[in-house]
């Protein structure tokens, strides 16, 4: 098998993973396709060293995440990393309020759309937490935010998801 064919197989194996991660981080499928292309170009430049690595999937995820975060911070005027909530942990409890009737999060299509509808500053930490299994501390370090703000944004993201799922739009 040629090296070019090797690289095409590599793209075939990982394109859904890379595209999904980019689409969830960016909330925009056209931009996700651009970022996925950039991620694979970086992979191509390092293909000799990563092609036999058992961690190439993780490497590709890290590259995609960094590209998407850079893209958000550089190219989106509306991107705000932090919520505007006061920087204290008590705010999270204050937001919680009484238990509401829980909507069913089983509808995958609706959940995906709801995720994309979230504002960047809520969706990004939520995706990093739930899909990439990063801890609050790791997310805070990656985004350059405080721990309290990351917790607040994730909490607010979940609440926003709940509201979107409740209205079913």
């Amino acid at each position: 098998m040629t090296a070019a064919a090797d690289f095409e197989d590599f793209i075939s194996d990982y394109q859904d993973m890379v595209y999904t991660l980019a689409a969830r981080l960016l909330g925009d499928r056209a931009e996700a396709q651009d970022m996925a292309q950039d991620a694979f170009l970086k992979a191509y430049q390092n293909f000799e060293s990563i092609k036999d690595s058992p961690t190439k999937g993780g490497w590709l995820k890290a590259v995609t995440t960094n590209l998407c975060l850079n893209h958000l911070s550089r190219h989106r005027a509306r991107w705000k990393l932090f919520s505007e909530i006061a920087e204290d942990d008590g705010a999270i409890e204050a937001l919680a309020g009484p238990e509401k009737s829980a909507p069913d999060p089983e509808d995958a299509g609706l959940l995906e759309r709801a995720l994309q509808a979230l504002p960047d500053h809520q969706r990004v930490p939520l995706v990093l937490f739930h899909f990439e299994d990063l801890s609050y501390e790791e997310i805070a370090a990656k985004l350059g935010a405080t721990l309290a703000k990351v917790k607040t944004d994730i909490f607010r993201g979940r609440e926003a998801l709940r509201k979107i799922l409740e209205t079913g739009t």
């Binding site: 394109q15 595209y19 999904t20 396709q33 292309q37 999060p105 995720l115």
Partner: peptide, 13 residues
């Protein structure tokens, strides 16, 4: 969220 299936990458990618 963890069990959400991956999105299908466009064929043009």
């Amino acid at each position: 969220l963890k069990r959400l299936p991956p999105l299908k990458a466009p064929a043009s990618l």
